[in-house]
């Protein structure tokens, strides 16, 4: 099971802040994102930022069972 966290506009558009995905692991973030789109078709397209277990990650990063993945829109602090 992979825990996926959504932030900002991604949480608003999908109405979801957190979701668990039961996928075969290890899996790339890119493939996980495709799986997420099937569950949440309202997930907007665009450039996202990623983190796995609170560390910055890229689309090529491999995700394992029990990991927490954050999918984030570009930051807008300050």
């Amino acid at each position: 099971m992979i825990r996926v966290l959504l932030f900002g506009i991604l949480a608003t558009k999908t109405g979801t802040k957190e979701i668990e995905l039961d996928v075969k692991t290890p899996v790339s973030l890119e493939a996980l994102l495709e799986e997420l789109r099937k569950r949440l078709p309202s997930l907007p397209e665009g450039e996202f930022l990623f983190a796995v277990n609170e560390e910055h990650a890229s689309k090529e990063t491999t995700v394992n069972d029990g990991d927490t993945v954050a999918i984030m829109p570009p930051f807008s602090g300050g």
Partner: peptide, 25 residues
């Protein structure tokens, strides 16, 4: 401040009389 805007996971929403909207960076 330039680097903060690019590297810190914070997101800003504007609350207006017409409603709310997330701010593009």
């Amino acid at each position: 401040i330039d680097t903060l805007k690019k590297t810190v996971p914070l997101w800003k929403k504007e609350i207006t009389p017409e409603g709310e909207s997330w701010v593009e960076p």
